[in-house]
Design a protein around this nucleic acid. Structure first.
Lengths: 245, 245
DNA sequence: AAGTGGTCTAGACCACGGA
DNA sequence: CCGTGGTCTAGACCACTTC
């Protein structure tokens, strides 16, 4: 096991958490396997028990580990390890499932928002919005058609190229320094329009799922509103739900 | 504010957490409002800071509170307070939205499972399964049609009456002492059959959402498998997604 | 009896935000 | 500057599981 760096400005519990996370993801620690006891980790890294517990507790909350009193701490089985309804971008979600993500940009424009959109963002008159329409591929298969709305004031000089190449979440968090906090999402069934069916190369009258997502940043402002239509013959929407405390 | 009982066998952090939770639910603490600082709570209850932090941290993880460094700890707005993808029964979910829940039992039988079902539960030959079909109402509106499968061995002597009156989750946790841990759920769009449309009093060819849920107990055995068809003209499926750590 | 995780104490120093 | 939360230490006792 890697050792934590005591001189690093990165918190010790954070370092230990990421070391453990990496070991689980690399299967150095296998599902169902017991991990070192708390005292052992204390001695090995030369840190106190509360710090070790904080690292472990974080991973338990995420669903990567589970604890049994008197027995020990164990690695969760894959089913439970997956996103307990984490806010993930399309790119992140598909990568976590092992797909390579590409996009085809259909539309990119800075425009005056429709009423419905300006209401969602609480926009003032004269403020503009970016509208980005993309087909999203996992491997070679088109999976979803997405329309994203981004207020101009949050994204000065957003370029066509950036929005095509990168995950928007990547841009938010890296180029624009926006910390994402949470999102709300609704799901509705729809019948694919001939246009959509054609984009997906499926028969007309196929069904799809329409997701509407609003994403909020750390300071509770709305960063993005996205409507996505997913085909449901090859994409399955799955959620993992945890029982209350 | 209530004081914690130092002589109680209930952990102090647990008592404090439930006191705070109650104050938030009763709106003694309102959304956006700041709560007492950590030191203040320490002195008031005569407990140490780590204990106070544990109580607060639990509520932050649930989404009831949020913290801002240097400022304080605040009550979340309702949107964020709601189920961060918690595993809730139909009854619990609808009650949390303020509806009164009733059921109409359409079918109740102990039978030999279909192959598909016996595979899901890893059942041996000869084991039987309860099949329960119910229409579920929120107020006076029929919202969903549910078929639940429960292995007989986990639920000896389950009666028709029980399954009609109670939430199944209530039976699991109270009558049968089964601790629910988590569930996995998939969502698919469907076209309502004439039979379903009739039950819901809607036009034919309306769309609906099909949820398939598998619920697991503390010891990772499968407690229940349920297929639910929700009408989507009045029911909206909404999820709240938290960004990773 | 030894080892595990669960709870708890009483301190400490730090980074951040607001007056 | 002071109060906030964020991190961290070095102990302690307990309940539970395994041997």
């Amino acid at each position: 096991m890697k050792k934590i760096d005591k001189n690093s400005p990165i918190p010790k519990y954070y370092q230990l958490r990421e070391i453990l996370r990496e070991m689980i993801e690399n299967e150095e620690l296998k599902p169902g396997e017991i991990i070192s006891g708390e005292m052992e980790l204390c001695k090995f890294h030369g840190i106190s028990r509360m710090t070790v517990r904080k690292a472990i507790q974080d991973l338990v909350n995420e669903g990567m580990l589970y604890r049994e009193q008197g027995k020990g701490t164990f690695v969760s089985y894959p089913k439970q390890k997956k996103n307990i309804s984490q806010l993930l971008s399309f790119t992140e979600e598909m990568k976590s499932k092992g797909y390579n993500v590409t996009n085809r940009l259909l539309y990119f424009n800075k425009e005056i928002p429709e009423k419905k959109i300006s209401k969602i963002f609480h926009m003032k008159k004269g403020e503009m919005i970016y509208v980005i329409k993309r087909i999203r591929f996992a491997g070679k298969e088109p999976i979803a058609l997405e329309i994203s709305y981004l207020p101009e004031k949050n994204f000065p000089n957003l370029s066509r190229e950036e929005s095509e190449k990168n995950s928007l979440y990547y841009l938010f968090e890296n180029k624009y320094g926006i910390k994402l906090k949470y999102g709300t999402q609704t799901v509705e069934p729809v019948i694919l329009t001939p246009y959509e069916a054609d984009l997906f190369n499926v028969n007309e009258n196929m069904l799809g799922l329409l997701f509407k997502r609003t994403t909020y940043s750390d300071d509770d402002t709305i960063v993005e509103y996205t409507k996505s239509i997913y085909r449901c013959d090859i994409y399955k929407y799955e959620a993992i739900l945890k029982r209350k405390l």
